[in-house]
């Protein structure tokens, strides 16, 4: 269909997803039974404070006006202020984005670096020791919640061997090694479940590619087995893996929130959970929307990678 049209379509789709997330958040908050302002501030809040919040949330205006302002504010990056400490929500969230992104990206890198080679080995050495080991790893990966992996890692590496720090986060500016030593365990906890799925996808996709006619053609041309595998097979095998890897960011995301709690890291996930406990609704709303935007943006990046490795989209044509 041509790369430009494809990308335009994906960008439109991403915008639509964000629009729907914002709408769902709006509807959810407005359907709180009773007075949202009273619920947010708690039963013993002074009436003036409640009234001020009602004003701020425009709760006295008709719903469609509220909706309009809601969308306008999001469009201009205004996510409101925290009820807990009156700081702008966007600043609060950006302030804690560093650790979340560090864990997520390092986790993803670990997942891809382990899972894709393991998936390839597993497929090429099907029904041999390597395959069984890799399959076992992937099955455990898809069966263990990230926070439990985190707890096990703390028990083994931090408590028993006192090898790596179990709590907190250090900015990369304060030393890359310290940063990495704080990030590696949570990143593993996040990356293993994600890697498990990626590995299974790589394996089954590679197995399919190995049976393709063009692989036999490549062999019939006298190419060496590893040239056949890596020059002719790899890119084809990765196309479906890339397709799902974006959608599976959701797995990564769920992992990040709970893993931040386990490792006591002040990231976006922990801020979100703390805000829920404080009933700090503007932060909850803003957090959900901002994280969704990051999530959708990452998916868009994956789409771009997809267009690059799939010539059918890059060059269009064909039937």
């Amino acid at each position: 269909m041509g790369m430009r049209r494809y990308i335009a379509k994906r960008v439109g789709h991403a915008a639509l997803v964000i629009y729907f997330v914002a709408t769902v958040v709006f509807i959810a908050v407005r359907s709180i039974p009773g007075d949202p302002a009273r619920l947010m501030l708690g039963g013993d809040a002074p009436p003036e404070a409640i009234e001020a919040l009602r004003q701020e949330l425009r709760l006295d205006e008709p719903v469609y006006i509220q909706y309009f302002y809601w969308m306008r504010d999001i469009l201009f990056g205004d996510l409101g202020e925290s009820i807990f400490n009156n700081q702008p929500v966007l600043d609060l969230l950006i302030g804690v984005a560093g650790p979340t992104l560090s864990i997520g990206l390092v986790g993803m890198a670990i997942a891809f670096l382990i899972a894709i080679p393991a998936g390839i080995v597993s497929a090429t050495r099907r029904y041999q020791v390597e395959d069984y080991l890799a399959t076992l790893f992937s099955f455990i990966g898809i069966s263990v919640p990230g926070f439990f992996i985190g707890i096990l890692l703390i028990l083994v590496f931090a408590n028993r061997f006192e090898f790596l720090p179990a709590f907190g986060y250090v900015k990369p500016q304060e030393g890359l090694v310290t940063w990495f030593s704080h990030v590696i365990l949570p990143a593993l906890a996040v990356g293993v479940p994600y890697g498990g799925i990626i590995m299974r996808m790589t394996r089954s996709s590679m197995l399919e590619v190995l049976n393709e006619d063009y692989m036999r053609t490549a062999r019939s041309k006298g190419l060496s087995p590893r040239l056949v595998l890596y020059k002719h097979g790899l890119q084809n095998a990765l196309i479906p893996v890339v397709t799902v890897s974006g959608i599976l960011f959701a797995v990564l995301l769920g992992g990040v929130v709970s893993v931040e709690i386990v490792f006591g890291i002040r990231g976006m996930g922990r801020l979100l959970i703390n805000s829920i406990n404080r009933r700090d609704f503007p932060v909850i709303q803003g957090g959900v929307i901002l994280i969704s935007i990051v999530f959708v943006f990452m998916n868009l990046l994956v789409d771009l990678v997809y267009t690059m490795i799939n010539p059918k989209i890059k060059y269009g044509g064909g039937e």
């Binding site: 006619d213 063009y214 019939s220 006298g222 890119q235 490795i309 010539p311």
Partner: peptide, 22 residues
Amino acid sequence: RDIRGGNISMVFQDPMNSLNPV
């Protein structure tokens, strides 16, 4: 490998699937 492609080469049945799409 020296024989394949160099001395004896093959033409397979389905040209859509026997050429590498990428």
